[in-house]
C-alpha cells in the first residue's frame, strides 16, 4: 500500500490553500461510485421493482402498478412475518440486555476475568452464523445431542420441530452470538463512569444494588440506547441464522420478514411482492432507528457533523 508518488518539491500556488476542497474532491469519487452503484441504486431499484411483476427467470420486467403491494398487503403472511420479526426482536432484547449488563458490570470490575477468560468469552463473535446454526442444529438433536449427553429429560425435546420451542431456539442462538458483543459495549461504558461517583456513594452508605440503580444505570443511558438500537435494528436483518437453523419453520413459525422476502423472491420467483417486503423492511428499520434516537434525546448524527 505504499504507492505514494514522490511529492513535488515546488510549493503549490497559494490559491490552492483557499479552496482546498477542490484538490481533494477526486479522492472521494471511487468510494462514492462504488456505493452509489451497489447501495443507492439498489435502494431505488427495490422500490421500483415493487411496482413490477418480475418473475426472476425472464428478462422482461413488466410494470404492474400496485398489484404487488395489493397482494402483499392482503396476504395474512405479512402480519405474521411482522409479528415473528417483532417477537424475535423483543425476546432477544429482553434476554440479552440484562445478561449483557450484568456481565458488563462484572467484567469491567474484574481485570483477571477480563484478561484470562475473555479470550474464550468472545469466540462466538468470530463464527459465521451459518457455522453457529449448523452446530446448534446438531447439538439440539433430541436423540444424539446435548440433552442425551447430559441426561436431562427437559433438554431432550424436538427443539426445532415445535413452533414455540423453535422461536426460543432462534432467540437463544442469537443471544449466544451477540451477548459477548453487548457485554463489550457495556463494560466499555461502565469503565467511563468516574470512580469518584462510587466513592461518594460508598461514603453515603449506598450498597452495591443501590449504586447500580443510582449511578451505573443512569450513567449508562446512552450506552443502553446504542446497544438496544443495534439489537433491535440488527434483528430485522437476521437471515443467515434463521435460514440455516429453521428455514422459517416449522411451518412458518420463524418466518421473519427477511426470510419471507427470500422465500417469495428466490423460492416462489415473485420478485414484485418480495421487493415490497424489502421496502417494508427498510421502512421499519428506519422508523425504529429514528424512534430510538429520539428516545436518546439528542441527535447523534448532527453532533457527529459538528466537527466538520
Amino acid at each position: 500500500m505504499t504507492i505514494a508518488p514522490p511529492a513535488p518539491k515546488i510549493a503549490p500556488p497559494a490559491a490552492n490553500s483557499g479552496g482546498r476542497g477542490g484538490s481533494v474532491t477526486w479522492m472521494a469519487w471511487p468510494a462514492l461510485v462504488a456505493f452509489l452503484t451497489f447501495g443507492i441504486v439498489p435502494l431505488i431499484g427495490v422500490l421500483l421493482l415493487s411496482f413490477t411483476s418480475w418473475n426472476r427467470l425472464s428478462t422482461d420486467i413488466p410494470f404492474t402498478g400496485l398489484d404487488s403491494w395489493r397482494s402483499v398487503l392482503s396476504d395474512p403472511g405479512l402480519p405474521h412475518a411482522l409479528w415473528v420479526t417483532f417477537l424475535i426482536m423483543a425476546l432477544s432484547w429482553l434476554f440479552q440486555t440484562p445478561i449483557s449488563l450484568l456481565l458488563g458490570v462484572f467484567i469491567a470490575a474484574h481485570k483477571r476475568y477480563r484478561s484470562v477468560l475473555a479470550v474464550l468469552f468472545f469466540v462466538p463473535l468470530l463464527l459465521s452464523q451459518a457455522a453457529i446454526s449448523i452446530t446448534f442444529k446438531a447439538l439440539l438433536d433430541p436423540n444424539f445431542g446435548l440433552g442425551a449427553g447430559l441426561g436431562f429429560e427437559f433438554l431432550q425435546q424436538d427443539w426445532l420441530g415445535n413452533s414455540t420451542l423453535a422461536m426460543g431456539v432462534v432467540v437463544f442462538v442469537v443471544s449466544w452470538q451477540f451477548i459477548p458483543f453487548h457485554t463489550l459495549i457495556y463494560q466499555g461504558g461502565i469503565r467511563q463512569i468516574p470512580a469518584s461517583m462510587y466513592e461518594a456513594a460508598q461514603i453515603d452508605g449506598a450498597g452495591r444494588v443501590r449504586q447500580f440503580f443510582s449511578i451505573t444505570l443512569p450513567q449508562l443511558k446512552y450506552t443502553v440506547i446504542t446497544s438496544s438500537t443495534l439489537m433491535v435494528v440488527g434483528s430485522l436483518t437476521f437471515f443467515d441464522l434463521i435460514w440455516v437453523l429453521t428455514a422459517g419453520g416449522p411451518g412458518d413459525a420463524t418466518r421473519a420478514l427477511a426470510v419471507d422476502m427470500y422465500q417469495r423472491g428466490f423460492k416462489a420467483d415473485l420478485m414484485g411482492p418480495a421487493s415490497a417486503i424489502a421496502v417494508i423492511l427498510v421502512l421499519v428499520g428506519l422508523a425504529l432507528a429514528l424512534g430510538l434516537r429520539r428516545l436518546g434525546g439528542r441527535d447523534a448524527t448532527a453532533s457527529q457533523l459538528e466537527g466538520l
Binding site: R20, T25, A31, F35, G39, V41, V46, L236, T237, L305
Partner: peptide, 27 residues
C-alpha cells in the same frame, strides 16, 4: 469545510449505514 459536495458525500455515507444488505439484495 470548503466543499458542499463533500459534505453531501459524507451525509450519503452516514445514511448508507442504515441500509440493510438484505433489503436491497433483489436489485
Amino acid at each position: 469545510a470548503a466543499s458542499r459536495f463533500l459534505r453531501g458525500v459524507n451525509g450519503l455515507f452516514l445514511m448508507g449505514l442504515a441500509i440493510p444488505l438484505q433489503a436491497v439484495i433483489i436489485p
